[in-house]
């Protein structure tokens, strides 16, 4: 698998506070990578470091295969668009002028692209309005348009849904999906709205205290979080035989427990188990979401 972004033991310290403590992360090309963690877990610090706003205390990171702190890394950064925390805009300029400004920074010859980008993010009618009069959602969308100005291969968006109304959230979500599918842009997102993140992310990274707890693909997560019935029986061997006969997909967890991924008729199952000489002790319906997975992973005891 090709990675557009890799970090190795990345550390960032502010005085005695360790914001990142040996972060290891890999963002595959074409992925929508969701960074999940509590407040202060290090998500924004990681993004700041990766965007060149802060230098790491120790450790390394690679952007498109180039060391991030080298000259090649600075050149590779040209392929990145980012909205870290607040969108980077000049409030006294209009939306169109901000895009024109960014086009000049990037040395883009075709400045007519500003109109296309405004249309893409749904700000065609507000392009001539001063940014200081924009709503939070409009600023967020303008920030994304600015990040897209250089036709980037990697888009870094820190809390892109923050402060948006439900309609705004839907629009930004659809924009993220469209950019990923149509333009093949790899995305690195962080969000507190796990339900929203689960609608777009193809990969997840769970951060806690500046460390990566776990990286998992959406597919793997789906496997882990599949709806299932957890059966507790006297003998899982006998249960297996019964489930084979019923044609149900299952995973044996222990001598007495198994997860069944099928809608089962409990009466039929009980009958089948009786035939195998097995006793059904308990049935529990399990429906684990990203949220419950996150809570289980983090422990859920701290709320800072």
């Amino acid at each position: 698998m090709e990675y557009v972004l890799e970090t190795q033991d990345l550390c960032k310290r502010y005085g005695s506070f360790h914001a990142l403590s040996g972060l290891n992360m890999a963002v595959p090309q074409g992925a929508i990578y969701g960074l999940v963690g509590r407040n202060g877990a290090g998500k924004t610090t990681a993004m700041r470091v990766l965007c060149g706003l802060q230098t790491p205390t120790s450790g390394q990171y690679r952007l498109f295969g180039c060391p991030g702190t080298s000259r090649q890394g600075a050149r590779a950064r040209r392929r990145i668009g980012a909205v870290v925390e607040e969108p980077a805009v000049y409030p006294e300029l209009t939306g169109g002028e901000n895009l024109e400004y960014q086009a000049r920074v990037l040395g883009l010859p075709d400045r007519g692209e500003a109109r296309q980008l405004l249309r893409l993010v749904g700000l065609s009618d507000a392009g001539g309005k001063k940014v200081r009069n924009y709503s939070l959602g409009m600023k967020q969308r303008l920030g994304i348009a600015l990040a897209l100005a250089g036709d980037p291969d990697l888009l870094v968006l820190d809390e892109p849904m923050n402060g948006l109304d439900p309609q705004g959230i839907i629009e930004v979500r659809e924009l993220i999906l469209r950019l990923n599918r149509e333009r093949g842009i790899t995305m690195l997102l962080s969000s507190h709205i796990l339900d929203e993140l689960s609608k777009v992310a193809t990969h997840y990274g769970f951060l806690d205290s500046g460390r990566m707890l776990r990286q998992i693909s959406a597919q793997e997560l789906e496997q882990t979080c599949r709806k299932c019935l957890r059966l507790t029986v006297s003998d899982t061997l006998a249960l297996s035989r019964a489930l084979e006969k019923l044609g149900a997909e299952y995973t044996v967890l222990s001598d007495t427990q198994a997860d069944v991924y099928a809608r089962l008729n409990i009466s039929k199952l009980t009958k089948a188990l009786e035939g195998e000489g097995c006793e059904l002790v308990g049935v529990q319906e399990r429906d684990e979401s990203l949220e419950t997975f996150y809570v289980n992973l983090m422990g859920g005891e701290r709320h800072d």
């Binding site: 965007c51 060149g52 706003l53 600075a74 050149r75 590779a76 950064r77 040209r78 990145i80 668009g81 980012a82 870290v84 925390e85 607040e86 969108p87 980077a88 805009v89 000049y90 409030p91 960014q102 920074v105 990037l106 940014v131 600015l146 250089g150 870094v156």
Partner: peptide
């Protein structure tokens, strides 16, 4: 104030 300085650094300007 508007954080615009980040827009230049993230695109590789030193």
């Amino acid at each position: 104030g508007g954080g615009a300085i980040r827009g230049k650094l993230t695109v590789g300007k030193t």
